[in-house]
Structure formats: C-alpha cells, structure tokens
C-alpha cells in the first residue's frame, strides 16, 4: 500500500481537487483506492454526496477511541466508483486540537490505522486541512509521499514557505526524510502572475517541483457539481490531462524511490 498526502498550509490551492483527481485516475488504473478526509470542512466527503454529520463513524473516532481493523472498515463509505472508498471527516475534527492538544503520540494515530488497512488498498490519498495541527501532522506522518499543490500566484509562495518549514522541523522526528513534490496548480498562462510565480517556484525549489502545471479548468468545478471524479466527468479535459501526467510522474518516481 502506498500512502500519499496532499497538504499545504494555505487554503484554496487545489488540495481536494488534487486528491480526487489522483484518486479517480488511480481507480481507473484498477487500483483499490482509499481517500481519507482529514479536513473538518469535509469537502472531500461532500464531493461524493456524503453527509458526514449524519454518520456514526468517521476519522474522528480514530482519535477518540481505540479502533480495531473492523471498526475502521465500518467507518469507510463507498462511493459510486467500485474501487474508491472514503474515510469521511466530520466537523468534530475541528475540536481535536483543543481536546488532544499536543498529547504524546497523537500524531501517529492515522499511521497506525493505515497500517491495519495495508492489505485492503493499493493506494491511500489523504486530503489535509489548511492548518498545521494534529490532523495535518498525522497525515504527514502517515505518508510515503507528500504532494504539495501550490496555486501559481505570488502570495501562495509564502504559504509554501511555511509548509516547507513545517516539514523541515518535522523531519527531525521522522525515521526517513520526507519525499515531497510541489505541484503548481491553477496555472493561467494568460496572466503574468502565474508565469512569474512558476519561474520563482522553480528557482527556489528546483528539483522538488513537478515539471508540469495543472491549468485552470472549469471542468473541475463542474465535475464537483456532478459529484464525479474529473477523469469520469471530462476525460479529455486539459485539467485531467495534467493530472494524468502528474500521476505518471509520481508513480515513476515512487518506483525509483522504493
């Protein structure tokens, strides 16, 4: 099982879109995919029509009680796609930082839970909240690879800088260095800001930047309205094309790194 975490401390950079797009494409490749929603806003869950506040079990339960494999499996929600399941989020997750604070070891809850599901899925893709806290730390600690979407606009560079610092500090606590890839998103070739930011990004992080861009594409929004993964909604759209290239890159480099 391979675990990817989609994270950035800045909001609105395309984390959920990246999670869903990659999840959809992996499922098309025939892999068993689990999408994990760790954002209290539960956008990923809502995307698939899951009213997570009506659910009895969610990611939240992993943090407040000891969960067995069976209990975790019961928390999963199926989607209209046969090989995509979701571990949904609830708004209650927003209280975790307060209730758990920095309680020892609580950063490893998701990692332990995913270890129990190792035979059930080929890929796990986690969507993070845009806040550094116990949820993001959990998702980062559980991942084999971190995908950092970055909107190609100047202010987003600051958010990226914070994310890099977080990973840099966290790395000292990890057994292995973080394997991360920055993905330029919402690229609009007509705007100067997009081009300049993209160049700056390459100057600053060079080999950590995926050598491609995800363009602005209204099909993403339309796909979410239709509750379909983008590759199902608009298979030949330029956005989906970009995520296909990204997936190829991630899979190639994943093999190399293993």
């Amino acid at each position: 099982m391979v675990v990817w975490t989609v994270a950035n401390q800045k909001g609105g950079v395309g984390k959920t879109t990246t999670t869903i797009s990659l999840g959809g494409l992996l499922a098309e490749q025939g892999f068993r995919v689990l999408l994990v929603d760790t954002d209290p806003h539960a956008s990923l869950s809502y995307y698939f029509g899951i009213e997570s506040e009506d659910l009895e079990l969610s990611v939240y339960n992993l943090f407040v009680e000891v969960s067995t494999k069976e209990q975790i499996l019961q928390s999963l929600c199926p989607t209209q796609y046969e090989n995509i399941d979701i571990l949904p989020a609830t708004m209650g997750l927003a209280t975790l930082d307060r209730s758990l604070g920095s309680k020892g070891g609580m950063g490893l809850v998701l990692k332990k839970a995913m270890n129990l599901l190792v035979d059930e899925y080929d890929y796990v893709v986690m969507d993070c909240p845009p806040v550094l806290g116990v949820l993001m730390v959990n998702a980062l600690a559980a991942s084999d690879r971190i995908i950092v979407p970055m909107q190609t606009e100047f202010l987003a560079l600051k958010g990226l800088d914070r994310m890099m610092k977080t990973m840099e500090i966290m790395q000292t606590e990890q057994e292995k260095p973080f394997n991360y890839t920055i993905v330029p998103t919402m690229f609009d070739k007509r705007t100067k800001a997009s081009l300049l930011t993209y160049r700056k990004l390459q100057d600053l992080y060079s080999d950590k930047v995926w050598p491609g861009v995800v363009p602005v594409d209204t099909n993403f929004r339309n796909a979410s309205e239709a509750s379909k993964v983008p590759s199902d909604y608009a298979a030949s759209s330029r956005g989906v094309f970009a995520y296909k290239r990204l997936l190829e890159f991630l899979q190639e480099t994943q093999v190399k790194s293993k």
Partner: peptide, 17 residues
Amino acid sequence: KKLMQNYLSELLTEEAV
C-alpha cells in the same frame, strides 16, 4: 522553530500515548 519542534516532538513520540 523551537516551539514547533517541541509540539511536533510531543505528537510524534509514541511512548506516552
């Protein structure tokens, strides 16, 4: 940075949990 390091260290140290 030190504050962050302490916070992350607490969260990622398993013994106490």
